[in-house]
Amino acid sequence: MKSLDLAESNSAHGLSVLLATARAEITKFFGLRSLTGLYVVGLVVTVGLGWLLGASAKASGENGIDSAMPAPLIVFATLQFGQLFFAAAAALHLTGEYSSGTMSSTLQAVPRRGILTGAKALVLGIFGFLTGLVLIPVATIPTALAAGRYGEFDLSKLFSASLGAGTYLALLSLMALGLGLLCRNSTGAIISLIALVIGLPQILGPIPIDWVQSMIQYLPTNAATFMATGASEPYGPVVAVVVLVLWGVVLLGSGMLMLKKRDA
């Protein structure tokens, strides 16, 4: 403990504080059944829906309706729904600390709020990335089996869908964390999350104004689709990643500013 000399504190120890804080965040995440539960439900839902959509693609195909799609992309499409579980876990990881009053303990242990935000973002981002990376290959197996030849795919599609899902779930987790920091309560954070990924596309969809329609293309869910499917219209995967990163930076950044500005 002698090495913890206060004088030589700040920037040199920044990284070491960040890593120590990240370890604590991992412990807190796995200590809550509600969060690990959401991840498990998200996995089950994605595997189940993938299998269902696969079977549906096969039935349609056999009846002459061509809806064939590579199995990994079928799975990716189910994330439209499954994403909510992972994003909710990220938001609740934070807002649970506010509702229980634990935020005071957390900030006593880690008073530098930028570092605290960074550690939470690091942990939730990595969890989201790994989940997407693993989820697609795992769910592709039952989906491909159900879809038969209507879900045929090559490895490059599996690879790009997995990487895309990982990137998307990582950035979505950061957006959820940002919304949590802005709302500071679970209900608000979950409702704004649902509004962002499901509500907005639905509400804006029927509005027949050109700029509204082009704006919809830049909502996170649509950007995610363009990224994973390797689309070229209206924009390609690289732009899609930039759009998603911007969403993450803006939401997480404003959340962090509010954390720094407000009393705990």
Partner: peptide, 13 residues
């Protein structure tokens, strides 16, 4: 009024 998340155990906290 601040001692841990209700879903955590004291040891986790």
């Amino acid at each position: 009024g601040t001692a841990g998340h209700p879903g955590h155990t004291p040891r986790t906290f």
